[in-house]
Design a protein around this nucleic acid. Sequence first.
DNA 1: CAGAATGACGATCAAATGATCCCTTGTGCG
DNA 2: CGCACAAGGGATCATTTGATCGTCATTCTG
Lengths: 318, 318
Amino acid sequence: MSQVSTPQDNGFLLDAEEVEQISRAAWYYYNDGLTQNQIADLVGVSRIKVSRLLEKGRQAGLIELRINSPHEGSLGLQEELVSAFGLTQARVVPQAEGLAAGPRIGRAAASLLTQGLCPNDLLAIGWGEAVSTTLRYMAPVFPQNNISLVSLTGGVSAYIGNTGLYGPQGFAHLIPTPLRVSSTELAEMLRLEPYVRNVLDMALTAKTALIGVGSVARSATLVRYGYCTGAEIELFTRRGAVGDVLGYFYDRDGQILDLDVHRHVVAVTPDDLRQIPSVIGAAAGPEKVEAILGLLRGRLANILVTDEPTARELLRRK
Amino acid sequence: MSQVSTPQDNGFLLDAEEVEQISRAAWYYYNDGLTQNQIADLVGVSRIKVSRLLEKGRQAGLIELRINSPHEGSLGLQEELVSAFGLTQARVVPQAEGLAAGPRIGRAAASLLTQGLCPNDLLAIGWGEAVSTTLRYMAPVFPQNNISLVSLTGGVSAYIGNTGLYGPQGFAHLIPTPLRVSSTELAEMLRLEPYVRNVLDMALTAKTALIGVGSVARSATLVRYGYCTGAEIELFTRRGAVGDVLGYFYDRDGQILDLDVHRHVVAVTPDDLRQIPSVIGAAAGPEKVEAILGLLRGRLANILVTDEPTARELLRRK
DNA sequence: CAGAATGACGATCAAATGATCCCTTGTGCG
DNA sequence: CGCACAAGGGATCATTTGATCGTCATTCTG
């Protein structure tokens, strides 16, 4: 039955027939308010099957819940953030003790993007787990509205694999290099390579960009993915680094530091990034506060997605 | 407590505090998957209150369910409609015996629009119950994305009142005349009136328009609202009318008829309407089939929202 | 080809939800 | 001042839902 998908089918891929079933069930359930039993009778399957279809649809992001309110979460905090840091928009996810922040931020960012993107738009994406999580929730939206993706940095392909984006991925234009290479010369050559250059140029035409915010810690994603050693991180910290965007480290004022590693990076430069009208930074957690502060002070992003505790801390330390 | 809203508060208006509560509860419930009990503890209200908040949110359209699928409902029918009538898009809501078609079509159209509109866009609206229902479901979306409304015809204000659109309505540009006036001269004068002219011109700059499809029956909305008498309808039918857009009657090929009444109408002309890139027609029901056929044959709309039985009938009679 | 493993499906049951009823509180009117 | 009435909130209970378990079919493997 499912001879289409690859062996390690991760469960997020649905074939067309299933999508149709799910859509129909979802419509009956959520829009018409029928019970699962009624739907079961109508469609001619068992009730439990309906329950499973709906569950699957929610999982896969096919069924998306949208909160049409400028103040999803805490309105007050959002407004304070906007005015305190001169942002154009902010989204603050409500506090919740026991829940992992990652997926929640991802959902919020995805919802923000879904609202903000127009059909046929181009979305530029940076590097980081928040980006990956967000894409994961947006997967079904892309084909729908014919949205294309373009990467701001190398090394993104590793992430895209995790996001359940299906299809031939003709809509994703990724820089086919690592984020960081071993020498200045190689980095320079790669950046001038026509295909790479094309993607970099294309990225700058995007009206919206989504970036993660890297904290400077031995547990940072950059380290875990092997782009950086813990020792290097320590060195950068001593030079004043508090975070990174697109592989470039900056100090507490958001000033990009003068580090060798920056000449080894294959990515859009922070200055170019600032040319993109809407740059969305998504991050939360106590360990990210310093990094976010730098990001905002340096005007490297003008839209912020974070959670309640982080927002409070940002405002306190403003 | 609710001294803000007018006496005949229709129950769809929410004050800011309530919106915040609802948003928060909805986030916890739908995104985090907490139970109503857990939310109750978290927010410090009773469980039943949470239940009621969520219900209210859904009612008011604050909580919206989106099905991210190109085939909401019946994919097959949608594709057939697109190719049979040369449309750019079609949306078919699934069949359901006992349910009123009106709200369902409205929901579908609202969802289509919500997906297709960009922030700061202008949406042109025509005349009819389908339009009114659709707007009703979109009310919370407008302020969110800063969408403005512009009317394609006179007489729309009567409808807008029903839609629960709140705020000072600075975002709605309506033609402040009836749809139809008593003489050619008056209609002409009104059309040249600067304010009216402005709105008409503005409507033509919209990239998207939403229109209803009037059937030619004694029960037609046009008749019920007193713009037309049953006798006139009968006359038009004898002249070959099968339906109307924006108050203009057309025959089964979608050709606009040469009727006196058209010179009494204050509205954008069908020819101008065709200049709008996306014209969405929303209608369903056996009595509308002929009218929809004419509409599509005359290329007066290029996107159709309808239901399953109507779609089948359209294809059969193609 | 047999056996095992994997996944789909359906039954059972506990949890969650919302409808209904009733109580409390506030409000207007006699 | 008291009474009637309406609105908001909470308790109870029937319904709805999804988690767990067992069964069957299908496929991979030896």
